[in-house]
Design a protein around this nucleic acid. Structure first.
Lengths: 192, 192
DNA sequence: CATTTAACAGACAGGTCAGTCTAGAAAGGG
DNA sequence: CCCTTTCTAGACTGACCTGTCTGTTAAATG
């Protein structure tokens, strides 16, 4: 046990890394268990001892993705102090994600379209709740009179930009979304 | 041949109807050929004589969906003459779709997440091009100084509303998107 | 050194899928 | 009355999938 910590990544970590690469690149339904364990260099029995089922592995993959994405956006926003900059910074952080090689859209939207089970739905709801909460609180800090309303609209822009980046193969969608977000914020502030 | 016209829907029509119901409700990857022919009341050989492969059936399903959706939105917009009303009417028409029982999000976004093949991509590109063109031309007619830019932003709202209606199970997303679209249009007109 | 634990490789079962093929039924035309 | 065409029913192949099970190996512990 203690040796595992110094002997490199554990089986669980290798499985999650392999699942992340394969599931995100090719889809949770397309990629079979055999490909995951082959890339992880792990026996099939180890996967089932660790996660119990493919559904649970998918859930763990999405949860990890949620944590990594949230940490990344939070970290990006640290560079700004002004509430308005922080709100618009969400779309800049999105642009960084879009520009990465291997970007394939929102993992939660894709996974829920591929295999709409309870496990995936719960993970997706968690992620979407976090994004919505972030945008709503930023809208409030920026002075919007109805933060829930603006947060919801910004969330739509956020999702729409992600979809456009994937389906139109256009990473600059985040810049257009950022401009639209600025216009929506200004309109909300003017109506105050 | 002539008898078929009076003897009810053809095998092709029944297959397309069954494909539309099953593929949209459960996903193109989840639903197998056997379920489609069973619902259509058609032999498997007839399907392969008519469409050649499942991929081609999926393509035909998406093309039909494109035509039906486009006709429906176009028809909805006929009630308005004012360019601004027509632009916002797109989101009202979307709201009608969201409110239907069995609404499950954008068929093209789901299909392309499920099976990202060339046939699906082409059908999705066609559909997205149509939506983008509609919103852009309506933005121009409404007086926006940069119709391409506004059309693109409205397209993101359109996609984001559809995603929210599906994943958040919230049909009222179209109303929020309509309000955001109005704000974006007003901002564009004010900057003129 | 002995024992226990965990990971390994891989065969296997049970099911589903796309697509092909055979054979029979129905129906219109000469 | 036969013939051609088209449809139907369904068996079948080969591939792939998830999940289980059987051994084997390696390492850590007492």
């Amino acid at each position: 046990m203690s040796a595992k910590a110094v002997a490199g990544p554990s089986a669980r970590e290798r499985l999650l890394a392999a699942a992340n690469e394969l599931f995100y690149a090719e889809g949770v339904h397309t990629v079979g268990i055999d490909r995951v364990i082959e890339r992880a260099g792990v026996a099939k029995a180890s996967l089932y001892n660790t996660f119990g089922s493919k559904d649970e592995l998918v859930r763990a993959y999405l949860e990890q993705r949620h944590a990594v994405t949230a940490a990344r956006i939070t970290r990006y926003l640290e560079r700004y102090a002004d509430p308005r900059d922080r709100l618009l910074g969400v779309f800049e952080a999105q642009g960084e994600l879009f520009a990465e090689t291997g970007f394939r859209g929102c993992a939660f939207a894709s996974a829920s379209a591929e295999s709409p089970g309870a496990a995936v739905s719960r993970a997706a709801d968690d992620y979407r709740g976090w994004v919505r909460g972030l945008l709503t609180s930023l809208a409030g800090e920026a002075g919007a009179p109805d933060p829930d309303r603006l947060g919801r609209q910004l969330h739509m822009l956020y999702d729409g930009a992600s979809l456009s980046a994937r389906m139109d193969r256009d990473p600059s969608a985040s810049a257009a979304a950022r401009a639209a977000a600025a216009a929506l914020l200004d309109a909300a502030l003017a109506a105050r």
